[in-house]
């Protein structure tokens, strides 16, 4: 596996096709680019006018207000976990999926560790940017040990086969 293949999605690792220009670097004319919320709001017209995918990166504490109006044009939302113990991105992910109907790539980035992977997928993330070596290895070999019986509805229904709904909202996947 080449080292640059750090994005785990649909069960395997891929190289990242997105670029994340720094705030003071001019936007390249083409290609998929993702920017922070402030820049996104300031340069939305430019972003919409150029060729290539539009993505936005939200830090913990940044809400999706102002972004949601443009979700039809956005194909990547990356939510940053600065510390995995800061759980705000889980709520933002669920709001994007359930409340705002976002269907594009929803990526967890930053402190992404194997013990949270199941939570992330259930909260609606479908893509993981994994830097941690042990986590990469565990995902690559499918050796994550975790709980796959879920008591509560979450935001992954669309992507996971719905098992026997027994007896109420319970689900095994």
């Amino acid at each position: 596996m080449p080292d640059d293949a750090s994005i785990f999605r649909n069960g395997t690792f891929h190289a990242d096709t997105w670029t994340f220009p720094a705030d003071d670097v001019p936007l390249p004319p083409s290609g998929d680019i993702a920017v922070g919320k402030t820049r996104f709001l300031a340069e939305i017209q430019t972003l919409r006018a150029r060729n290539g995918g539009i993505g936005v990166v939200l830090n913990p504490g940044e809400d999706p207000d102002g972004i949601v109006e443009h979700l039809d044009r956005i194909t990547l939302v990356a939510l940053r976990f600065t510390k995995y113990s800061d759980g705000r991105p889980y709520s933002v992910a669920r709001l994007l999926r359930d409340r705002h109907g976002y269907k594009g790539e929803l990526r967890a980035t930053g402190d992404v560790l194997r013990d949270q992977v199941i939570f992330m997928l259930r909260a609606g993330f479908d893509s993981l940017d994994v830097a941690h070596a042990g986590t990469r290895e565990a995902l690559r070999t499918g050796s994550i040990v975790g709980v796959r019986h879920h008591y509560q509805p979450a935001s992954d229904e669309a992507r996971e086969a719905v098992g026997p709904v027994s007896p109420w909202r319970r689900r095994s996947v």
Binding site: R94, Q116, R122, Y151, Q152, R170
Partner: peptide, 13 residues
């Protein structure tokens, strides 16, 4: 108890 067990959104409050 059932609802809150390993709740994917509320495990890192």
């Amino acid at each position: 108890r059932q609802w809150s067990s390993l709740h994917p959104e509320f495990s890192f409050l």
